[in-house]
Structure formats: C-alpha cells, structure tokens
C-alpha cells in the first residue's frame, strides 16, 4: 500500500490574536494521493491559498497534523522544510513569477541555485522545456513569450527538480481558454505519467472538471470532498 502524498488531520490556521483573530482554516482533514489531480475550489477568502501554503511547507503556524509522504511537517525546522520544498515540491503561480532579466533557460534552472543537483542545470532546463512543449525557446526572455508559453516555462521550472508534488495556485487565471486547456492537459499528464500529486487551487470550473477530485472550502472549512 503506497503512502499518500499528504495526510491532513484537523488542520486549523488562525491569523491575528484576540479580537482581531481570524480563522483561515478550520479543522480540515484530507488525504491527497500521488498520481492524482486534486482541485481545491471555493470563493475568495475561503482558505484555499492558506491550505496551499501549508501543503507547500511555507506556513508552519497551523495546529493539527500535516504529513507529507509520511513525514510530519511540524517535526521539520525551517532549513529542513526548505530542503523539502527544493526536492519534493514544485510551485506554479497564477502570475508565473518569471524573472524578466533572465533567459527562459535561466528561469527554469533557478531551483538549481538552492539544491545540489548532479547534472548540468542547462541540460536539465532544456529537457524540461522540451517536456512542456517549448523546445528552442531557452534563449528567449520571458517578455518575448505569450501568456500560455510563460506558464509553460513556470511549469518547467516547477518540474526542474523532478518533484513528487506540484502545487498550482490558479495556474490558468491569466490565460485564455485555449491556453488554459493546454496547461490543464499538461498538469494532468504529469500526474498520470509521472505519478505526481498535483494540487490545483482554482476558480475555473473547466479545471476542476478535469481533476480526479475536487475539494471545496468555505470559510476555512471543508464542505465537500468528491
């Protein structure tokens, strides 16, 4: 029996103290399996991004238990969480967050700055760029690319370190329908072919309809796990 990518047990997150305290997540329990695309949906302010930050080991201020492939994230210090992100987690953002002063290839290989990799970063960047359908664009600057191509570069960057988990925050939020469909297809393929756990925070029903599973949040609480 394989270990789930994530297991969350009664996870709550509160910001602020006293009268200003606001509960962003409320006793969320959830299991996310490898090889699946999980869509997290819900209105703005429902706690989607807070959940994503906790899954990405970027927020350790929660209560409850979060384990990533059986490892309790609360047992890790800041350094170990950073190493975990570098090795096991790839992030994809709505705004791409590509560095305009770097070439596509250098953008893709940014993760190599923070994790030791055996191979040549440039070769690895070319490899993942080919995988996301952008061969031959490695010398271009991001501003020479379309929105869909930029998101492909961002996905290539997320795949650079061969992570077992992809966390995507509104990956199609800034794209047209055609580009959105391509990006979703790419993410689904990564889950199917590589066995990656793909978690997608989205408002887009088209995206959630392609997911293996949809998790809805409302006011920080899990209202549906289909």
């Amino acid at each position: 029996m394989s270990v789930p990518a994530y297991e969350l047990q009664a996870v709550s997150r509160t910001f602020g103290v006293g009268d200003a305290a606001r509960r962003a997540l409320d006793a969320v329990s959830l299991t996310i399996e490898a090889g699946e695309v999980t869509a997290i949906t819900g209105p703005s302010g429902s706690g989607k991004s807070t959940l994503l930050a906790i899954l990405g080991a970027l927020d350790a201020g929660y209560v409850g238990r979060v384990s990533l492939q059986g490892v309790d994230l609360a047992s890790l210090d800041e350094r170990a969480r950073a190493r975990l992100r570098a090795q096991k987690i790839g992030f994809v953002f709505q705004s791409f967050h590509l560095l305009a002063h770097l070439s596509v290839r250098d953008n893709v290989s940014v993760p190599a700055l923070f994790a030791r990799s055996a191979g040549d970063p440039a070769s690895r960047a070319e490899e993942v760029l080919a995988r996301v359908g952008l061969p031959g664009r490695s010398r271009d600057r991001p501003d020479a690319l379309s929105g869909g191509q930029r998101q492909r570069v961002a996905i290539a960057r997320a795949l650079f370190a061969s992570p077992e988990i992809l966390l995507c925050d509104e990956p199609t939020g800034n794209l047209d329908r055609a580009s959105s469909a391509e990006i979703v297809a790419l993410l689904v393929r990564e889950a199917r072919e590589r066995g990656r756990a793909v978690v997608v925070v989205t408002h887009d029903p088209e995206v959630s309809s392609r997911a293996d599973r949809e998790v809805s949040l409302r006011d920080g609480a899990l209202v549906e796990a289909a």
Binding site: R79, Q87, F91, F114, R157
Partner: peptide, 13 residues
C-alpha cells in the same frame, strides 16, 4: 525573494 523561498531557499540563503 518570495519565489526563491518557495523554490527551496532558506532564510539563511
């Protein structure tokens, strides 16, 4: 800096 942190940079980095 936020991106670097998400990609594995420690506060020390």
């Amino acid at each position: 800096i936020g991106l670097y942190r998400a990609l594995g940079a420690t506060p020390g980095d």
